[in-house]
């Protein structure tokens, strides 16, 4: 297990390095001076030169990249001030430290992700297991039908509809907003309730269908029948024998979904007017803000890679045949 973690961590570092290099050099392939953005409309050549110097843009690109990389570990000094490790540079747009900006935005994304995760995991797996257990009954048909409908929902459509209903027409809830949980737990909960419900609805449908189909597949397995043949109740065979086997596909998808959600549900955040990592990513792309773009890219990639490593480690926990190496 330890060897596995060391190997995978080294691999992850290599991938992050490649991603950062790729993004960095691609950015400089764009024929536009990034300092122009920071300089604004009334730009003089002197001001531009100063910005170049402040941001370190006067050096050759490989040197800049090296400075960038070493900054992550030891920090850097810019004209605008010291950037302590982990330093992801300074935004071209507003001269703020990228790392601080990301840390500002992250709590919202994490709240959105895990809030909806708890709902869709319980609702989705629960409904999927019930549908599989009572396969072919009205219960199964209801769940399967409902999940088919809701999984085809798009967040940018259903989001405004639900908001229109719950916020603007009836006024039952406030417009979604983010309040840190440490300041006001109730406000945090109420502020994110609508996005949670909407996200969970869509994900629940996927997890219902996945749990149902993988349980049905597992129930056909010979070892489930063998468990019944030795007198175990069908409930026992269902929850002990079939369930264990369906965990693998569920863990796989869950890992991908968590990674994806943490790296920013861009559409969700934009739909509900929330400013998280997704929104930051979009703004950095639109604003050609390289340091922010780089920071978000690396953070997102790191989330996805970590989720992958955790998923692979979980495989070995669930299935004794899997050997980590």
């Amino acid at each position: 297990m330890l060897r596995f973690l060391i190997r995978r961590t080294l691999g992850a570092a290599l991938i992050l390095l490649l991603i950062s290099a790729f993004t960095y050099f691609m950015y400089f392939a764009i024929p536009q001076d990034p300092a122009m953005l920071a300089c604004g409309k009334n730009c003089t050549p002197d001001a531009l030169a100063l910005i170049h110097k402040n941001l370190g843009l006067d050096k050759p690109v490989p040197v800049q990249y090296w400075d960038y990389l070493s900054g992550i570990f030891v920090g850097r000094d810019f004209g605008v001030g010291h950037c302590s490790a982990p330093c992801f540079g300074v935004s071209f747009r507003n001269n703020q430290m990228v790392w601080d900006t990301m840390m500002d935005r992250l709590p919202l994304t994490v709240s959105l992700t895990f809030g909806s995760l708890i709902v869709f995991l319980f609702a989705g797996l629960g409904a999927g297991l019930l549908a599989a257990r009572f396969r072919g009954t009205w219960l199964d048909k209801t769940f399967s039908g409902a999940s088919l409908v809701t999984s085809s929902f798009q967040i940018y459509f259903i989001g405004p509809v639900v908001m229109g209903l719950l916020v603007f027409s009836t006024g039952w809830l406030d417009k979604p907003k983010y309040v840190p949980i440490s300041e006001d737990p109730w406000g945090w909960f109420m502020g994110l309730l609508i996005p949670w419900i909407i996200m969970a609805t869509i994900f629940t449908a996927n997890y219902t269908r996945m749990a149902r189909s993988s349980m049905i597949e597992q129930l056909q397995e010979e070892h489930v029948r063998a468990a019944k043949a030795k007198g175990m109740s069908s409930r026992y065979a269902f929850f002990r024998y079939a369930w264990r086997g369906s965990l693998i596909p569920i863990i796989t998808i869950l890992g991908m979904d968590i990674g994806g959600l943490l790296s920013g549900g861009m559409v969700t955040e934009l739909t509900f007017g929330l400013a998280g990592i997704g929104r930051l990513a979009r703004d950095s792309v639109v604003g050609k803000d390289l340091p922010v773009l780089m920071g978000v890219m690396i953070l997102s990639a790191a989330f996805i890679i970590v989720c992958n490593i955790v998923v692979d480690a979980l495989y070995a926990v669930v299935d004794p045949r899997v050997r980590l190496s």
């Binding site: 010979e222 063998a226 043949a229 030795k230 007198g231 024998y241 086997g245 299935d319 004794p320 045949r321």
Partner: peptide
Amino acid sequence: RGNKMAMIFQDSLTALSPY
């Protein structure tokens, strides 16, 4: 089942749970 009457399956690889 398993008490008065028991069964031996053909393929022990699939009939025993891997977990």
